[in-house]
Structure formats: structure tokens, C-alpha cells
Design a protein around this nucleic acid. Sequence first.
RNA 1: CGGGGCGUAGCUUAGCCUGGUAAAGCGCUUGGUUUGGGACCAAGAGAGCGGAGGUUCGAAUCCUCUCGCCCCGACCA
Length: 626
Amino acid sequence: MSPRSCTGVSPGELRRHLTRACLSAAFPRPSPAPRVPIRARASHPGQRPPKAMRFSQLLIHTLRDDPADAEVPSHRLLARGGYIVKAAAGLYSYSPLMWRVIKKFMRIVREELDRESAQEVMLPILQPKELWTSSGRWDRYVTDGIMFSLQDRKGADMCLGPTHEEVITAYVDTAVSSYKQLPINLYQIQDKFRDEIRPRFGLMRGREFIMMDAYSFDADQAGLDVSYQRMDRAYRAIFDRCGVKYTVVDADAGAIGGAGSQEFMVVADTGEDAILYCDACKYAANVEKADARLVAVPNQGEAKPLEKHATPEVRTVQQLEEFFSLPPQVMAKTVLYHAVWADREAVVAVMMRGDLEINEVKLCNALDALAVKLADETQIRAATGAEVGFAGPVGLPESVTLLADLSLQGQTNLLTGCNETGFHCLNVNPGRDSAAPAFHDLRLARAGQGCPRCDGELQEVRGIEVGHIFKLGTKYSSAMGATFMAESGKPAPFVMGCYGIGVSRTPAAVVEQFHDDKGIVWPRSLAPFEVIVAVLDAKRPAQVELGEKLYAEFAARGVDVALDDRKMSPGAKFKDLELLGFPLTLVVGRRADEGFVEVMLRRDGNKEEVAADSAVARCEELLAGL
RNA sequence: CGGGGCGUAGCUUAGCCUGGUAAAGCGCUUGGUUUGGGACCAAGAGAGCGGAGGUUCGAAUCCUCUCGCCCCGACCA
């Protein structure tokens, strides 16, 4: 039955056509209401009833075994704890407990953004192609295959928004007409869709995920700088409140485009990004963006005559080193790439000093291409006339754009391929023996290389990108013709910034950092509940009564508490609560009738027995220290 | 996209090589006994083996196609 058949049709019509099962789903009978509505029991009129929850009524389903498809700790534990349930690759249902975690994170995000005067909005997720062609991104996103696109009944192209620059820019263009209305900063927290090449690691890289996107609109660059700083401040406050260890790194602007961006990275071994940092000066950058100090090599002196040498089966830098007994620093490997732009594609040649590697992100940016990919054998043969392993600048067809890394600038007498199978050239001097290459920084920085800012050394850690802030400038506003009337009396494009936070990813990143062999260890700020009152034996009246009493006491004091009144054996209950990861558990057990309970801290497993009378106060005290 | 692996009960798996009409643990239901670290006994319910086609007297097992899921890789010449 399609959902549509259950709407816009009268109940009478439905009744004639639908099965009883469908009917009862569409018009469920109300379950008998309790004689006394629960809310009426909240004793203080005008005061909201205390947040309260009983585990016996909460949907919790923990698994004893690790799910077969979970690899990293956060995925494994979130799935085992029943926090997430997979619907398909990269698509998850969030359980009530997970949703509480996410809502807590969203609340933190909202509070900190609101503090910086951002305003929350709701934007369409289903978006028309026109919006994306107006910014020029439809092609790129379709080329990359990252965007879910579809057609409506009229055959019009639509997409599920992977991000919201276009929609928001169009909206602000409509709503804002004067510089007097600026600056403005709008944000939304909604689902985004990306057809990831490889969804994985549970919530880390999903195809549908929750993201906070904020967009700032300023009249000029100085205004953008201020907005950017405010968001930087908000982001630091947000991740500080989550208690995670994170680092802020320089980043490539990627498909979003624009100049200037930083990523907020949660440090974790399972992170998908590599971060290079310097302890000496605090330089930190995504490896995609990172620079490293260039170690100069001695110039090889006056240009000498070009020599051609037979080098059968010598294809790699390492083989060349042996064959010529020359260090890789005097070699220029020439790598062929297939680059794609919106309106064309071509093979380009990139020269890199033999001891260094090419950073494809930098290359892509240098070419202003949509994408670059190593050329395949056929393309290499077509461009160089030689087999793989013998490419060089000499005699390369004019149609092949030649780029070179800055490490080769001014270098003479290089060793390169000859574009002839089985031959390499000595004393190659680009410009004399070949076209003059365009020099760019195309190097891939690596751990162990020198810091680009000081004489320190770069080190590497892995990180999970949970936030990203960009200075977009007028890239989108110009492309889309989104302008306001400036003070000068002339229309000017908005100067924009955009700022994202992975709302569903962050809790997963937090779990990567906060777990042990027993399960999750939520930081207080994100835990689905801060305190659990656990009644160990739900059949003993003394325990149940005391548990209820303590639970009510916590609730009355506004503590984020739940009562674990499930009927399960003590061992199972302990294991379950540990897996779920609540910061504090108040165990009401065998000494309940003597008036004693036990406080357990999840973080270090410490237990202490306290008198029931002072239990709530003691818990609040412990919570304050978490 | 390339390579590899896996789809059997709600979950984790066995069975497949060597075809004979599906098994275990956990979970679930009922009854009873238990109750401070994933309790015990008894009785049950629950899958026709991802899907389609083929071979065969007979297919979870063999073959073909297909779908789904997981992992690795995506070439530095």
C-alpha cells in the first residue's frame, strides 16, 4: 500500500477498500486511558512535570553479540547498545536513547549559535536543479556522483540536498535588500543526503545524516572576518561542552569552494582524515592541505647537453636510483593525470621531484578542475607515445599541459623519462628541452618533514571531521546574482561564510573517544540520562519503593534521571547499563531495606555505599565533577 | 570503479567441499525456581536458507544470473 492511498481519502472510502490491518494502522484505536492522567499527578500547577523515564517502558534493545558488520568501536557499541539500527548501507534508525543524545547535542549547538546571534531556519531538503545550475555546482556534484538526484512527475530534475548554500543564498537574496539588514547568520539542523562512494563506520559516513549548516551574510570582507571569528568561537564552545579532545586544522575548501577554512577534528585512531601538526608552533592542517618545509637540494649547475640513455625495464624512481646511481632529488618524475572540468577533459603532466609525492587535492585546485585522476595506460600511451614508466617533459605534445612542483623551480640537469619506451634522459632542463612548466605547490606533506612555519617537525594523527568553517566570499552570491544595496548605492554581492557541524557524526566521534571494553562511557553533557536509579531486584518491595522514592526525588530536583525498573537479573542489568554508558548509576540493591544504596561511576568503575537519605545529594555532587 | 568476502530464526553462527528435505547459542513466550556481575529447569513459538532461473528423482548445498551487505584497493610511473 502506498502512503498516498491513505491520505486525501475519506474514512468511508477507505473502509470499503482496505483490509482490516490497514484500517487499524490508519486509525488506531486509542488505548484505554489511565484513570488519572499522568500529567495530573505533577503536583505543582504551572510547573512542567519533571523529566522522567522508566526503562520498563522505554524501547531498549541491547545485543549480546557484536553485530557482524560493525568494525570501529563507535559503530560496534552504538549498534550493540541498540542506539542505532541499520536500514540499509549508510542509513540508520535512531533509537529513543540515541535521539536523546542527539537532541542534547543539538541543544548545545543551538545554545552556542544563538549566543552568537545566529538564527535558526528550516530549509527544503528536496531542491530543484535550477538552484544548483545557478551556482554551477550541478555538474560537479553529478560528475562526482555524490548527489542523490531524481525527477518529479513532470520529469523535472531535483536533488536531495547534500548541503544548502544554494537554497539559503536564494532565500537571503529574496529577503535581504539592504546593507542595513546585515550582518545576518542563519542556521538549520536537518538531514542531508550524499551518495557516498563508500558509506561506512555506522554514523561516521552515512548517506543520510543530520547536519547543522550555518551561513553568514556580510556586506564586506571585514564583516565576514568577524562572523567567521564568532563561529570559530561558537564551535570551540560547542566541542568544549562535549568534553572531547579536538584540534582545529587548516583545510582544503573542497567542493564547497572559497578561500580560508578550518576543520574541527576529533582525535581518534579510526579517523578518516590524516592531520599533520607541529608541536613547536601549533601549526596543524589536514594532509590534503598541509604544507611542509621544502628541503632545498643543491642545484646541478650550468645546463649540460641533453643525454638519452637506454633504460630497459627501468620504470620507477627506485629502479632509476640503482640504474644511474643518482639520488631521487635530481630526478623529476612525470605523472600523467586525467583532469575533468565542467566543459572539457584533458590529460595533464605533472613533474615532481623524485623524492616527493603529489597532492592530488592541490593539483586539482591548481588546475581549477572538478576532478583529477591518474591517467590510465591507454591515456598515457596516447599522450606520451610510450609505456607507463617513461614519461617526461621532453617532446610532450603541446596539447598536454605541463605543471611542475615548486621543488623543481630553478633546478637544472634533471633525470626524467624520454616519452619513449625503454629510455630516460639526463640533463633535462625544462624550458630549454621542453615547454616551460607552470610551477605550483603540488607536494604532499608527510610526517617527519619540516614544519612550514617554524623549525619543528610535522607529526601525524588521525582525526574525525566534526565541524568545518569556511570563508566563502562572494563565490555563490556572485554566481547566483545574490546582491543587496550597499552603502554606496550600488548593488553588491553578499560576502558569505558557511559553517557545518556533523550532528549525527559527533556523538559517534565522542564514542570513539569515550568507551572501554565494557561499552560506552558518555560524557555527562551528551549522555541519554545523567543518572540511572537501578532497582536490582524488581520483585522486592523494599528495593522498588526506595528506588521509586529516589527517582522521584531526583526528578523533582530537575536531574536528568531514569529509573531502571526492568525485571532482569542483577548481572545482566549491570552489563547492560555499562554497555549503554550512563555516567552515574545509583544501585538500589540488597541493603535497600537497611537504607543503603550504592553509587557507581561509569568512568572509572568506582563504587561507594551511601545512606539513602544522602544519596541524591551525593550524586549531584559527583555529577558536578563530571 | 577494481579486487576479495559474506547473505541460513530478532542477533551471532554451524551445515555447503562429499545434494537426501534445516541446527545451535543468545533473545522471545508460558510455568516454576532464582536474584550483587549477562541465573536454572521444563514446555513452546519462530527460518525453508537474499531473489530468479537451471541441473537433479531430490538443492541451503552444484551451475548461471541478479540484488543486498561488509572489507580492501583505486596505480606517484
